[in-house]
Write a protein that binds this DNA or RNA. Structure first.
Lengths: 145, 145
DNA sequence: ACAACAATTGACCATAATTCTCAATCTCAT
DNA sequence: ATGAGATTGAGAATTATGGTCAATTGTTGT
């Protein structure tokens, strides 16, 4: 299986785009964590390697990385978009804690099956889907309140 | 069963808030449609009745209307938040057409049951949830491309 | 009905996330 | 190595949304 870096390189070549240093740097910091980071988070991290990089470049790089199929946008309702891994990662849903912001990833093949049934019934062709459950996580519940 | 207007009035009174003309006007235009409108849509509609109303007032009114349990925010990924009915309306999920923007509301008690199972398994206390499937609707599929 | 007080409004400003502009710089096929 | 074309960085522009505050309105007790 190809590495993420190779996938990006290939996507760039196939689309007449250039493999710039910045795009690889952004990809690297994105790959290094499994957390759901904002553009700003990624910007701060890349700056440690390349202090001269611009915020707009990180925005642009993440769009390309998404288009290449390596990342996916996720919105947890806190005002900024976040990114999560898409390559070599199973499709999943999210439990989002309203107290501490923790995001728990969950899989449910049964739900996916019902989603298929649902779209078929409406003659709707699905492209992507998102399911999020907001509430209180185990840890915050224990802490009381 | 109480009317939406009564629910709002009661919520306002219980919370030391005032029943202003503007709040009722915003509620009225919101109640008149089943569409998913943005604050700006609602603003344009209310202006027909009250041309002197301010945009910020519509924002504030919709927040109160949500807090009163009459509306719920919904985000279909087009950059602005939209509102949908919550009072006298069953919980549902959305199929969102990426071509025409149409939003189809669907119910699935089976999925809700699986969601419960999922949260229980993670000892997570759910407060609210959202499931959206993006893709191509029946009509757009027929039109080709 | 009225006065007093607190809540609300409207106009405008503030903010935050994201995108655009454009001259300078970099990438890559040749 | 070079030229065509893509990308970058800096800052300005944009968009959705919320805050500020003096003027106005709704409510409550009399």
């Amino acid at each position: 299986m190809k590495s993420a870096k190779t996938v990006l390189r290939q996507y760039l070549k196939n689309n007449g785009l250039l493999a710039s240093k910045q795009r690889e740097q952004v990809l690297n910091v994105f790959l290094k964590t499994e957390k759901h980071l904002t553009v700003d988070d990624l910007y701060e991290l890349v700056r440690k390697k390349n202090p001269r990089i611009g915020l707009a470049t990180v925005y642009r790089a993440m769009r390309v990385i998404c288009d290449a199929g390596l990342a996916r946008e996720a919105d947890f309702g806190d005002g900024s978009k976040r990114f999560e891994h898409k390559y070599k990662h199973q499709h999943h849903h999210h439990l989002v804690c309203l107290k501490c912001g923790r995001v728990i990833e969950v899989m449910s093949p049964e739900i996916e099956k019902l989603q298929q049934k649902l779209t078929k019934k409406h003659n709707f062709t699905p492209v992507r889907d998102t399911m999020k459950i907001f509430g209180t996580c185990r840890k915050c519940k224990r802490k009381g309140e």
